[in-house]
Simulated scan of single mutants.
Amino acid sequence: MSTTTGQHCFDPGPLAPQDRFEAWRHAVSTAFVPLDASTEDPRQFHGTLTGLALGSLSVAGVGGDAVTVRRSRQAIAAGDPGVFKFALQVQGSSLTRQDGREAMLSPGDLVIYDTRRPYDLVFGEPYRMFVVQIAVEHLGLSAEQARAVVAQRIPGSAGLGALTSSLLSSLDEQLQKGEMAPDPRAASAVLQLVQATLLSRFRPASEVPTRDVVYLEGVRHIDDHLGDPDLGVSSVARALHVSVRYLQGVFAQEGTTISEWIRRRRLQRCRMELGDPSQAHRSVSAVAARWGYPEASSFSRAFKHEYGISPGAFRREVAGG
């Protein structure tokens, strides 16, 4: 298990093939809770694990070949930290069993299970999951509510499930790239959205998602669509299922506006690409168009206003060292 800036990764490379499955099982048991695991051919098994403490939560991306993972009563006796695991199916499919219920997940779906009671996870094909570990006292559900939601598929295609699935998917990408910081604000946003998603199973959501959640999702959506010339407050509000007025208020609390945030992020991306020697073959206008500036003249004015130098002069300056 290697560790960098608080992030821990399981690297099977240095291990002999016959040792990799047991080492992966041990790494997973250490990162999560004590678990049993079995696979058809341990010598051929390939598994991955990347984890990070995120404020009051911990998150991990885990995956591998077909495997069955079991949390038995014996394993519970060996170590019971009292946590819930809220999981996003990223790739492949899985079956979660707990308390006599079964949840079959496809990519984008969500599920929660309680480590204080036995459960089974069956992965019949290569898979990947993003898992959030939440202490029982932080989840905010009653014992009855918690028992009612475990091992139930939460579709990631609509409502709060879609917003939660999108946010966790984005965090998973950051974790794999080593770009996730242990930010307590991110932990708070994740926890609030998970709570809202679970509570919506008992009653229709009567409130829009919290401001922290909307802000983080807004920033993510903007970064993912910077190349769209039509990106603006209306399109972002539609994607997040909130009103334009509410979204504007969220960004105003951060001391900015949607339009200003989009403008700055586009210029930052253009500046990075213009300074990248591997992109020297692309014209300034092509770089501008890629990041949402279809008109080269307006891009040139905006760039010079922001950085005090024209795009072409900046590129020449960087190229000259």
Rank of each mutant, 00 (worst) to 15 (best):
A77K: 12
Q74T: 09
L198Q: 08
G321L: 15
R269T: 07
K177Q: 07
G255A: 10
Q253N: 10
R271H: 07
Q176G: 06
R271K: 08
Q44M: 12
D212A: 14
A196W: 03
A196K: 03
R101G: 09
V62M: 10
L168K: 01
D228K: 01
S2E: 13
L171E: 02
Q174D: 03
A205Q: 04
R97E: 15
G55D: 07
D276P: 06
R264V: 12
V287M: 13
S2P: 11
G100M: 10
A66S: 09
L226I: 00
L54Y: 02
F86D: 02
A205D: 09
R315N: 03
S285F: 01
Q74E: 11
E22T: 00
R116C: 14
T197S: 15
R315F: 04
D228A: 15
Y215P: 09
R185T: 09
G312S: 14
L35H: 02
A319L: 14
E254K: 15
A186Q: 04
R316C: 11
A151R: 00
V131T: 05
Y293D: 06
E317G: 09
A289D: 01
T164A: 11
Q89H: 05
P229I: 11
V62L: 14
F314E: 02
I154D: 07
E125D: 07
G108T: 00
V219M: 14
R266P: 05
S170Y: 11
V242G: 07
H281Q: 13
D114I: 06
